[in-house]
Lab assay of single mutants.
Amino acid sequence: NKFNKELGWATWEIFNLPNLNGVQVKAFIDSLRDDPSQSANLLAEAKKLNDAQA
């Protein structure tokens, strides 16, 4: 379904953000699993944090 596809894509993108540490990645992935409907918002937050830590 739509959420599974978005969840998978967001998970892959978060895993590939180079400036996040393992704890941050795990926290974002756990949040995605808790509420897949928020995948776009969580991915945006992860990208912002990644950019801030560059």
Rank of each mutant, 00 (worst) to 15 (best):
A54F: 08
A46S: 02
A10L: 06
Q53K: 04
A44Y: 10
F15Y: 14
A52I: 11
G8S: 14
N41F: 14
L49E: 01
G8T: 13
L42Y: 05
E6L: 14
N16P: 00
N21S: 14
E45M: 14
A10F: 15
V25T: 04
D30S: 11
P36H: 02
Q38D: 07
L7E: 07
A40L: 12
I14Q: 03
D30E: 11
S31V: 06
W9D: 07
E45V: 07
W9L: 11
A54M: 08
L20W: 01
K2G: 13
V25G: 00
W12V: 05
Q24Y: 02
K48R: 13
P18H: 07
A44D: 08
N41Q: 13
L43I: 10
Q38W: 03
A46N: 00
V25I: 14
A10G: 04
K48E: 07
L7Q: 05
L20F: 01
Q38H: 05
F3W: 10
L7H: 04
A44T: 07
K2T: 10
E6F: 13
S31R: 15
F3S: 09
R33V: 09
F3H: 11
L17F: 06
A40Y: 11
F3D: 11
F28R: 00
W9C: 13
G22Q: 13
L43H: 01
N1P: 11
L17N: 00
N16Y: 05
D34G: 10
E45P: 00
W9A: 11
A27F: 15
N19V: 01
D34N: 15
W9M: 11
N21G: 05
A46V: 02
L20I: 02
D51K: 10
N1A: 05
A27E: 08
V25N: 00
G22F: 14
N21Y: 08
N19T: 02
E45C: 12
K5F: 08
D30W: 05
L32D: 00
L42T: 06
R33G: 04
W12I: 05
L17W: 02
Q38V: 04
L17Y: 03
G22E: 13
S31N: 08
A54I: 06
Q53N: 06
P36E: 02
L7C: 12
L7G: 03
D51A: 13
A54G: 11
L32H: 01
L43C: 03
K26N: 05
L7I: 13
E13D: 04
N19M: 05
K47W: 06
L32K: 00
L42C: 05
T11W: 12
N4K: 05
D35G: 02
S31M: 14
K26M: 13
I14N: 01
K5L: 07
L17E: 00
G8C: 15
A44K: 10
N50Y: 02
D51M: 13
N1V: 07
Q38K: 09
I14W: 03
K48Q: 09
